[in-house]
Design a protein around this nucleic acid. Structure first.
Lengths: 237, 237
DNA sequence: ACAAAAGTGTTGCGCCTACACCCATGA
DNA sequence: TCATGGGTGTAGGCGCAACACTTTTGT
């Protein structure tokens, strides 16, 4: 029963990649869904996905697929689970490697590919999806919370310049809670990851809130570190 | 470029499952490796693995494979990454879904299947492995640390009755550090997960250390919760 | 009696939360 | 000048790490 004996008569499977693309519109955490163009399940919403080609890894396939949809390269991408239930795709047995992606929704707007009839949905109110894509989204949301509770990945969702109140509203929506603004501000600034800009955003208040940029260098160096960004990370996962 | 158009001419792949089986012998964290019986790479060490069959999920396959090796069912199993580099298996393009498993090394001793020439190795000193199995082990170790820093999964490695000093030495080996025994004891007991037994283990000291059992009910209820078990979880992952 | 490991007590520091307060500015 | 959101200051408490101390018992 070692591998070699069985190389001859083993089943082969089609292998797909599905991407949960997260974005943030300034108020709500969103996911990007596409409309299926063909049967079966024509007209229904699904995740952006595709098949893994002959000479590429799942990671490469995911990047290729995301580029074809958004025009963007170098997107933050994290493999989080492989779905392999025998009956998950009724047309053909398919194994799917699921990724979640974090993109700046504004960059996406510029380079959108209209072929896919893509649309943003609030993570809390997305429509019914084909196959097991609904499960994939729910798990992706949990994994995002889990990782973001201790790593600084949520910056990937923000534009180059952003204010602390905007950052806070992002965290509040991702974790479905609210934070004390003073404590939130101090905690974020203590990471030394933010560089204060001269300009303010006055669209939300008379006083205006300072813009910040990410300290890219410091950010890259600290990606692997774990910070206590969330007060009570219990009950995540 | 939607899925359906391409259902016809997509490549299929063999899909494997590979298991990193962790055990704890009372002193060191170990992994279980098997000796390859056939070419290529005959005689080299590898992870326990096998192919996913027609009508089973990767999870089912992993459980089946682990049972064939250890005789055990209901083993703690966690999918942590899928490896899909095109050239990872030189014989045939194969995608592998990797799992790590946690077992009580004593239970294993009772029911070992000798067909596989399996052997335990210290996690820090395992031999060269075939394909990308070395990478798989390193990543599994990181994921184990990451998860165990906040979840109570390491109990899966212990026998039914265990002492606090034994538990501590397990944590110390997993995280490659040392803990203050007083603080460690308090932290563990504060979880309310341990039930003190009447007997002591006197093999390591004159005074003897009390045995504890897991409060299974409380344990199951709290599996999803996150505790701060490790003082400085920085630099994990 | 003493050595050696198990287990308990205690203290002080640091962080974090809660909440009060000040600031800037458009209307 | 007042309303509104941005931002700062601070006090209390809790948790945790460090380390001293007590307990137990085989030799």
């Amino acid at each position: 029963m070692t591998k070699d004996k069985r190389y001859q008569h083993i089943t082969k499977f089609t292998v797909a990649v599905d991407c949960i693309v997260f974005g943030f519109d300034g108020t709500r955490l969103k996911i990007l869904l596409v409309k299926r163009g063909l049967e079966p399940e024509k007209g229904k919403w699904s995740l952006m996905g595709g098949f893994v080609n002959d000479n590429e890894s799942a990671e490469t396939a995911a990047n290729r697929i995301l580029k074809s949809l958004t025009g963007l390269e170098g997107i933050y991408l994290e493999q989080y689970q492989t779905f392999s239930s025998p009956d998950r795709d009724p047309v053909q047995r398919t194994i799917s490697v699921a990724y979640f992606a974090l993109i700046d929704i504004n960059k996406y707007q510029e380079s959108i590919n209209t072929d896919f009839e893509a649309q943003w949905f609030n993570i809390k109110e997305f429509p019914q999806l084909i196959f097991d894509h609904g499960d994939m989204v729910h798990l992706a949301q949990k994994k995002l919370q889990y990782k973001a509770a201790s790593h600084t990945i949520l910056f990937e969702l923000l534009p180059e310049k952003f204010t602390l109140p905007l950052l806070q509203s992002l965290f509040e929506d991702v974790f479905d809670t609210s934070f004390d603004k003073g404590n939130f501000s101090r905690k974020m600034l203590s990471t030394k990851l933010l560089i204060k800009q001269k300009e303010k955003d006055k669209s939300n208040s008379k006083k205006g809130a300072f813009y910040y940029k990410l300290d890219k260098k410091h950010y890259q160096e600290n990606l692997h570190k774990i910070l206590k960004l969330i007060p009570n990370p219990n009950q995540l996962l």
